[in-house]
């Protein structure tokens, strides 16, 4: 059964109510790298997973967006989480399962998931200087 544009009217009303709840609260900003490198590495399902969970968990103070190439193509998919003070956490080699944990622990409970961050990849410590080509 094909869905109809008319259904949007109900979503509009519901969203308006939520916008009223949201005002004044600054929260996390989640940014997913979506250049050729990110897309080829699997960024799209990661972005979708984050969007679904943020909506499902009603994390109304979280905004989700995308950016171009972050410059660390071999560590894609990359997800950056920026908190209300502007502190940035960079998660690398993210997949939908890792994204689920990031939403649960970082966005909901405000704990950084350290083992997915940039300095540790597959259990190995990466020297950030090595990444500068």
């Amino acid at each position: 059964m094909k869905k109809s544009l008319a259904e949007l009217e109900a979503i509009r009303k519901k969203t308006l109510e939520q916008i009223n709840l949201r005002t004044g609260r600054e929260g996390f900003r989640v940014v997913v790298g979506m250049a050729t490198c990110g897309i080829a590495a699997g960024a799209r399902p990661v972005l979708t997973k984050i969007m679904e969970l943020v909506e499902k968990e009603k994390l109304t103070d979280v905004t989700v967006s995308q950016t171009g190439c972050i410059g660390l193509c071999r560590l894609e998919p990359i997800v950056e989480v920026v908190d209300d003070k502007g502190e940035k956490t960079t998660y690398v080699k993210v997949n939908p399962e890792k994204a689920e944990r990031i939403v649960e622990e970082h966005l909901k409970n405000k704990h950084v998931v350290k083992e997915y961050t940039m300095t540790v990849v597959d259990g190995t410590l990466i020297d950030p200087k090595v990444e500068e080509n």
């Binding site: 949007l8 009217e9 979503i11 969203t15 969007m51 679904e52 943020v54 989700v64």
Partner: peptide, 17 residues
Amino acid sequence: DILGEEVSIQSLEVISW
């Protein structure tokens, strides 16, 4: 046009719809 000016098409509810 249906959503009007106050609701963004980038709202996650709208995206999932």
